[in-house]
Design a protein around this nucleic acid. Structure first.
Lengths: 142, 142
DNA sequence: GCTTGCCTTGACGCCGACGTCAACACCTAC
DNA sequence: GTAGGTGTTGACGTCGGCGTCAAGGCAAGC
């Protein structure tokens, strides 16, 4: 199979495959015309890469999985190096999710505070005899 | 105050300030020597920008807050446009956290599965009269 | 013969938020 | 005088994962 077919079967592009080869991740054999040739095993490697990429793994993080498969192991994660990557990624995800959740709460708090301040100003402006409006209130009044 | 002092007081760099000016976010007055000059108000604007940046807001997303402050409002989020950015960011964060959490669970499941497979293989290898080891088990055996 | 389609290599573009370096001007201190 | 610290503009580099274009080769079909 040549590069176009492999790309199509994996749902990616030829540019991506050439990039992987340049990175040493998915080397290709060549036919007599200098065209890259791949087999079903390469498709398996490629699918492993793409799956991990979809999970947010860096390309370099997929390397242990690919090498594990190429070494003849039944799965990309049949090797200790792959398990280490899994654990490292889990730690990263936990840290990131924690940070994002904290930011989310902070932003939500800021939004509530800002909305209360806005409503307080709007209420004040409606009180007869209350303080006269200072400025245009950011478009709220019209 | 000149650019170096403002940068130091905001805990950032002169390069960053020049970048903000180039983006039209934080324009500077000039003194007779062509040097940028800033006042305390600019420091306030800059701190608003940096706070939002720390939360993961894009530079463009900080613009409504900066313009709100520059329009004389008491806070950067005293304007409706800023509240919209807050809400959009909350939605983004929720979506992102949801995706990351799903990925986290998937990866955790993969890790558990791979560890079970590894342990099963190791146990098999220890059974007297069991199947002979196929290969080197990815470094587990030594 | 000519177009179409697949392949090749090489090289630049992109995104965001700056870092870094070059080459120069200015002021102060020693 | 000169070294050091401040400022200026301009321009290229960074990171990852490719997209996109250029210029060319080789085969099949009309």
């Amino acid at each position: 199979m040549r590069i176009g077919e492999l790309a199509a079967r994996a749902g990616t592009t030829t540019r991506t495959l050439r990039y992987y080869e340049a990175r040493g991740l998915l080397p290709a054999r060549r036919d007599d015309k200098g065209h890259r040739t791949y087999d079903e095993g390469d498709l398996r490697l490629l699918r492993q890469i793409r799956t991990l990429q979809d999970f947010g793994f860096d390309l370099e993080e997929t390397r242990p999985f690919v090498e594990c498969l190429r070494a003849g192991h039944p799965e990309g994660d049949s090797c200790p190096a792959s398990l280490l990557v899994y654990r490292r990624k889990l730690d990263e995800l936990d840290a990131l999710i924690g940070q994002l959740t904290a930011v989310r709460e902070t932003v939500a708090g800021q939004l509530r505070r800002a909305e209360r301040a806005r409503d307080a100003l709007a209420a004040e402006a409606l009180v007869p005899g209350g303080p006269e409006p200072v400025c245009e209130l950011g478009g709220l009044t019209r």
